[in-house]
Amino acid sequence: MKSSAKFVAFTGILAALAVVLSLLENLLPPVPGMPPGAKLGLSNIVSMYAAGCVGFFPAMAISLVKGLFAFLTRGITAGLMSTAGGLFSTLIVWLLLKKLRFGLLGASAAGALAHNAAQLMIACLLTSSAVLYYAPILVLLGTASGILTGLALGVLLPPLEKLQRR
C-alpha cells in the first residue's frame, strides 16, 4: 500500500463493509431465549482484519464510523454501546495481535469479550444494573462468537494479505 489516497480509500471500503455487515446482522431475526446484546459479531471480522493488517488508527476509525452509524440508525443508547464496544475491542485486538503476538483465536475471543464488557458497562450506566444478570451468558456467547470470527479470519486472511500486497 504505497499511496496515501489508496490507503484512505481502502480504509473507507473496510468501514463501509463493517457497516454493511452490522446492518445485515440486525436484519437477522432475534433468536428466542438469547439475552439482549448477544450477537454474531460479523463486522468484527473487518475490525480485526484492520487492526491486524492495516493499522491501529484506521482500525479505530472504522469502529468509530460503525458506532456513528448505529447512532443514526438505532438511537443514542445503541450508538454509545456500539462505539464503546467497538473502540475497546479494537484496542484489545490490536494489542494482542500486533504487540503481544497472540493467535487469531485468542485475540478474537478477547476482542469479543472486550466488546461485551464495554457494552455492558454502558448499558449499566444508561439503563439499569439489571442487565448484568446476563453477564455470564454473554461471556460464553462472546467467546464462542470470537472463536467463529477467529476461524473466519484464519480462512480469509491469507488471500486478503496477497490482495493487499499488490
Partner: peptide, 12 residues
C-alpha cells in the same frame, strides 16, 4: 470490567 458487573449484580 466484568468482575465489577458480577459484584453489582446481586443488589439488582
Amino acid at each position: 470490567a466484568i468482575l465489577a458487573s458480577m459484584v453489582l449484580y446481586p443488589q439488582s
